[in-house]
Amino acid sequence: MEPVIAVSNLDKTFPVANEDFFALQNIDLQFAPGEFSGIVGPSGSGKTTLLNIMGSLDKATNGKVYFMGDEITSLSAKESAQLRSRKIGFIFQTYNLLPVYTVYENLELPLILLGMSTADKKQAIMESLEWVGLTDKVNSKPAQLSGGQCQRVAIARAMVKKPTVILADEPTANLDSENSHIILKTMKKINDASGSTFIFSTHDDKVIGYLKRKITLVDGGIQQDETF
């Protein structure tokens, strides 16, 4: 089966005091469709940088990244944006909902970029809110929701366009234990139902407990790659 994302011999360096600091070094990874995987490791290990490169938000210094078999390392900014708008959903540690818009409108934004009709948008948004159990909050604004509810809206926003891959950067870092489990169960349910690939960046043990595959990153290099 063709991997959804394949990373080949990837390096990422940053200039630090006239020298190149390797944030990532010699990374080779493949993610199959429907995986529920996590990149784990301590702070500064390169998790977020790797997630950004796989999500076409950042460029690798060396090496290649393939998305559904197509190389994305050399895409233009516009092509990268198109890839993100159609195929990749992001979930952030701090939710990053737009505060002046309602839950409905926050979910509507990615669909506007896809040029969907009003009826199709409404159907997709309500379906997505059903997945996260927040149909009753459709007209609420982020400030009226709890942290856990905000993160569920963020999951719904990532899911609403039915992406191939969802990249979640520390999605439970701002949540208490109970809400973390609710979020993780919700994502697992979506993963099972939709077949979307979930890739986490985390150092939260609660998340790790749900993963089917754990890739441990230390100092920019893969230390361990375990499948459960």
């Binding site: 938000l57 198109q82 890839l83 993100r84 992001f90």
Partner: peptide, 16 residues
């Protein structure tokens, strides 16, 4: 810039 970051992540192009 924060809002801009979210919109870029969601898939809006820089020129848009």
């Amino acid at each position: 810039y924060g809002e801009i970051g979210v919109r870029l992540a969601i898939g809006e192009s820089k020129s848009h």
